[in-house]
Design a protein around this nucleic acid. Structure first.
Lengths: 351, 351
DNA sequence: ACCGATCTTGAGAGCGTTCTCAAGACTTGT
DNA sequence: ACAAGTCTTGAGAACGCTCTCAAGATCGGT
């Protein structure tokens, strides 16, 4: 039986190096005003003993908690997960978060919260009290929730809102939704398409509006109409089926669809198949999100890649470093990219 | 400007209820020996004030940290993520973990560790010192790593190893790999297949061996040969391409392949396509993992669904509850299921 | 009623860290 | 060489909680 090793504390290091606790603390935190010689001696002791400060104790002593909390929607996450749909937001956030946090000595935690329940405040409040995070990242639809932002403001916890339009406290980040929709639409225009429809997300999401705006602007610039070419879904597969059917029935001359989620794009692909339309020969398709599944459909889908991980990374850096310009109310835009695969092609020749 | 609310501490509750800190603590922790009347009074104060204990303070005072740490391989996770391949392990673990943890008042954190670097110990040691988790969950290949298990044993941190054969400390959990491979193979035998190949994972992974064993046993039971029908990949797409080509060239009468990962199954599908073989008419295909992508291929793949989330959930419950039978060295088996889709069919008639 | 055992409650220390503040060691300017 | 700063270091309190231990309240048996 190996003897259980006692935890190495700051006191052990102080004794080993023959200095006070305070000096060790200063060295650990890179504080100023420590003579180089002493600093080296302490650092040597730290390395030798393998000392790492206890997060809990650091938090206790009134300094930071070194925890960033990401809030996700429980219902949607669980549904995605249960149906093995791919929990894109969660893993993208988590990875972007973990990487960025660890770079700065922070940790990321994910909290699932019920958006629609009356006790959002209660649930979130409990998490905040327990964890006392140094920052919170809100994704849609939580980033649009007034109750939540008010709660965070009241507790003076810095937070970042991703994909929200609502003004107010907190840094805001967007993933260039309008620009991406504009880009995708313009690309389809270049390919000769004249009737380009959009299946949008629900209107409660600010990003739905941005995408519609980008699409409209591109159409207007090309002198193309948008009447009858917009349908609204809920990001899910079934809503995509309904929307795609409606669009294709109403517009016999439709040659391109932009869907506001991969699931809805998959649904559009399915509808095309059931109507005997070949993608991309008869119908071009662009989706939003670029989750792993769209690479393996037949054909692989052209998609707008949402830079979730990068956006979260940016959010975290502002949160912890209070990076220059991290004023409340500032808006940071991370650009999305269009990944062209095989679901887009020149418009069919209507000879 | 709303006034910033001060954190509610146990002291506030004690004052409000007119009792000592200790009594509040007992109520919060469900301690024994508190008169019902007093308990109710304290509970009322807790509810009124919205008190939630600080995790950091709890940890400090020598009790538990209420943190479960899951260790994942950094390299593999990052590669999966960068290529938008779907980080199945991460999100499945995370979700199973978050759900189970929150049910018991715990939190889950994910740590990415370099398996192949010499400083695994250093990296992991730092995480353990900082977080002081109450339990650690190890997935392959970390669950097979002696250095890691020794480190955890030395620090007396309970840990669970998923998918490892290596004896030693810690609870072990498997996802019924042998059984699942046996099940899949038997199903193919029932469909009339006589030449059933396997593309296995690397031999360092215990689960590779288990799957091969299950496959071999099923073949033996059916009186079928296994010579020349085994190829080894590294779970990745490219290795699957090589393995599938080799198998099909070497065995002209091959009618079924079981791949030990979704990526390798996708590769086999690709190879079938390039050789003009129709799946499932000419070749049946079964994959392992059942990540979201295999539902959207053409045809959708029959797959062994790895119950990662459930396994993690079980691991956590043993770790925190020290559930009955959580003896070190115990092995818990969670059964995997076969999800039949359209990549399997009766063996072609060799007339 | 009385004695010992058991319940219930509270007081005080301690967990590992950082914060505040004060004391001593150097500088610098004259 | 002396006063007035500036650096460097350390002592002690504080953070919010649970642990240990002791004191008072209550109970059961005679």
């Amino acid at each position: 039986m190996a003897r259980v090793r006692k935890t190495v504390t700051i006191r052990d290091v102080a004794e080993d190096a023959g200095v006070s606790l305070q000096t060790v603390s200063r060295v650990v935190n890179g504080g100023p005003n420590v003579r180089p010689q002493l600093r080296d001696k302490v650092q040597a002791a730290i390395d030798r003993l393998g000392y790492v400060p206890s997060l809990a104790a650091q938090r206790m002593s009134g300094s930071r908690s070194y925890i960033i909390l990401a809030i996700n929607d429980r219902e949607r996450t669980l549904a995605d997960w249960r149906e093995r749909r791919g929990t894109d937001w969660v893993d993208q956030m988590l990875l972007g978060g973990i990487l960025t946090c660890s770079k700065h000595g922070y940790r990321m935690m994910v909290e699932l919260v019920d958006t629609h329940s009356d006790h959002v405040e209660r649930e979130l409040g409990a998490a905040l009290s327990a964890l006392q995070p140094d920052g919170v990242i809100l994704t849609p639809p939580h980033s649009e929730n007034r109750l939540i932002t008010a709660l965070l403001a009241e507790r003076a916890i810095p937070f970042a809102r991703i994909g929200s339009d609502a003004p107010g406290a907190g840094i805001r980040l967007t993933m260039g939704d309008a620009g991406a929709a504009h880009l995708a639409t313009t690309r389809l225009v270049q390919l000769g398409h004249k009737r380009i429809a959009m299946i949008a997300g629900p209107s409660q999401y600010s990003l739905s509006g941005w995408r519609i705006a980008g699409w409209r602007r591109a159409l207007a610039e090309a002198g193309l109409p948008d009447e009858g070419l917009l349908e609204v879904g809920d990001f899910g597969f079934d809503s995509g089926i309904r929307a795609a059917r409606t669009l294709l029935e109403r517009n016999p001359d439709l040659t391109a669809i932009i869907a506001s989620s991969d699931q809805m794009a998959l649904a559009a692909l399915e509808v095309a198949r059931e109507r005997g339309l070949d993608v991309p020969r008869d119908l071009s398709l662009v989706s939003f999100d670029n989750t792993p599944i769209v690479r393996f459909t037949q054909p692989p889908l052209t998609a707008v890649d949402q830079p979730i991980a990068e956006t979260v990374a940016r959010a975290i850096e502002h949160l912890i470093a209070r990076a220059p310009g991290a004023e409340d109310g500032e808006v940071i835009e991370v650009a999305a990219a269009l990944v062209e695969r095989s679901s887009t092609a020149p418009a069919p020749d209507r000879g």
